[in-house]
Design a protein around this nucleic acid. Structure first.
Lengths: 197, 197, 197, 197
DNA sequence: GATGAATGAGGGTTCATTCAT
DNA sequence: TATGAATGAACCCTCATTCAT
């Protein structure tokens, strides 16, 4: 049975790590800084996480969960498949999440994926969830093969926009991403269900 | 006239840095490792590059130039606007360039853009060249506004695919990227010139 | 309340730095050597001092304080202005302080003053304290203008003697310094108070 | 037989080292910088000087010689012992020599004396020359014992003033040094010759 | 559980010195 | 002679990790 207090501390620390990531980037995220951000000593971190890697892993997992929650909340309000599709998009570009800082942290995370198996695992989970969410909508609007293709392109587009955001290019805005995203959807996804078309 | 030997060493070192980047990631790319990769002592690196940052900067610049050469070579052979458009795409997904290793190196580079002004400058140059190349074709095939929108989406898609490639996901192939890319083009870019349509 | 252990370590380290300074000169005073002298690992030094500069700064400050204590102790016992004047002199040439080693450390410190603002600050403080101490006595023995001139020359003489001592010239002794100092005072400072003379 | 060109190069290099010392301080005086200052390659320095230490040694020796020349030139014009005394003082505080930069370089040099036997040797030579110059004058103006004492104090005063100058304290000027120096002389050295008094 | 002191490895960088050309 | 390429040691500093308290 896991200690209740342990769960709280772990949560506090991942939250602190998340904030530190945004403020200092992945390279500037040291154990000491995360501890300070959480108001704890540097040493305590290793009581709750075996590794720095494990801390970061948990952090990314929680960040992914946050994003998911946003999407899920919006999905609840949606009724038609198309509304659900838009909910997924809106959720992935929510103002509080789709920030340059968070996107940058995510980008740094991606850059580590190939040399960190745990990161790779998390990344795969997130990607699959995205795909499954998209397919759930698109299958009701498009024939299977077409749905698969569109789902793939949408998720690549989302990654591309996040990458751009992570570059902290001032000339690139959230509105732009949403507009381009909607343009794509308008062209490739019909208003009404027509899976046989 | 710059020292011939200096140019050679600089080239060797950027090449070594590029290889090290692919093998160890950005974080694992130390001066000592780059030196070893080039068969030189650690100290010599600072003879040719003031900084680690400058070495990496030169490395990314050279990598960008390589990519450009590929695109330019293909553009030469193309005659119609549409062929030129495809040349740009093919060039950006050339088998020798669009490898998981190179894409990973590029991804690491992107992750540093927000904290490294020089990297930001290089990234901006590459992005603008891409945009200008695309617009040169699309303006002959689509009305201006539409051309801008499509050019924007294409370049975000390319970034998205490179990101995916950089994640070294075995399930994601170059063929897939090309297919999705072509699907998008087929839907948004007419065969023949019709800028007024 | 500051960490007790921290204060102890900081004190140990400044003491170790002081000894290292005497044995190896400023250039030979490396973080590792100071750590070793204090029986600690090289890394720990940065736990207590942000910089090498800060360590040396603290070291010089403490050394200055030691010198001051000596002077103050002697000043306590003095009753007449002239006795106080001699107390200042004696204090600045105390056998335990006016050693070739300490003088050498002080000389190294002086050599860094122009390129280290913090060192400059400390040096200025010490110099002002000296001047103020001297003036306190001399104003009771000499007219103001004369007092200022004599105070200035005395403090330059003291610096000159310390410099000589720092050169570790075997032919130069503490007795000599004291004798020359007294000769000067006998010629320029009257036995009894006579500020109007 | 020493190569003529070798002597020229050695002279150029010591001159360059002298300039570098003023501009970058002792710590900033690297072989490469001295070479650059002399318009030569870094490697050539070791053709003419076995060591960095030897280069600096030669540099200090030459600097001492410069100072001497100044003094000698002024001594030539002087006729009476007292004039000669003033010539020595003026020579040691010549506007082109008694600069904060040169004094700082000299101060750094002094700080190395105890750990560098060659430096110690040079320093001793300079000090003896000073003493002998002073005695030559003072013996004609004061009884021997008194002359020795005054010569000693004068030379300590000069060192003290040079030290102060080397601290680059803006509040301390050449005029001040000269005034204080003259005050001292006026009090301790009679106008006319009176060795028996 | 919790602290923060302590370690030690490793990184970037500088630089005197050597050596092939 | 002269160059500047090359080496390698040493320095300061950072930081994940361990451990006594």
């Amino acid at each position: 049975m896991p200690t209740r207090i342990g769960d709280i501390r772990r949560q506090d620390l991942t939250e602190a790590a998340f904030l530190t990531l945004q403020q200092h980037g992945l390279r500037g995220t040291t154990i000491a800084r995360v501890g300070a951000q959480a108001g704890m000593s540097p040493g305590i971190v290793h009581h709750y996480f075996k590794n720095k890697a494990e801390l970061l892993e948990a952090t990314m997992r929680r960040t992914g969960a946050k994003l998911s929650k946003e999407v899920i909340a919006l999905l609840r309000k949606a009724t038609t498949p198309r509304e659900r599709l838009y909910a997924i998009i809106e959720g992935n570009f929510a103002p509080d999440t789709f920030t340059p800082e968070i996107a940058h942290a995510w980008l740094s995370f991606c850059a580590e994926v190939p040399v960190n198996p745990q990161f790779a695992r998390i990344q795969r989970v997130l990607q699959r969830r995205m795909h499954s969410n998209l397919m759930h909508c698109l299958r009701q609007l498009l024939p299977l093969e077409k749905a698969i293709a569109v789902a793939g392109t949408i998720s690549v587009l989302i990654d591309g926009f996040w990458l751009r955001r992570g570059l902290k290019d001032e000339a690139f805005s959230r509105q732009q991403a949403l507009k381009q995203m909607r343009d794509y959807l308008d062209q490739h996804v019909p208003e009404t269900s027509n899976p046989e078309a």
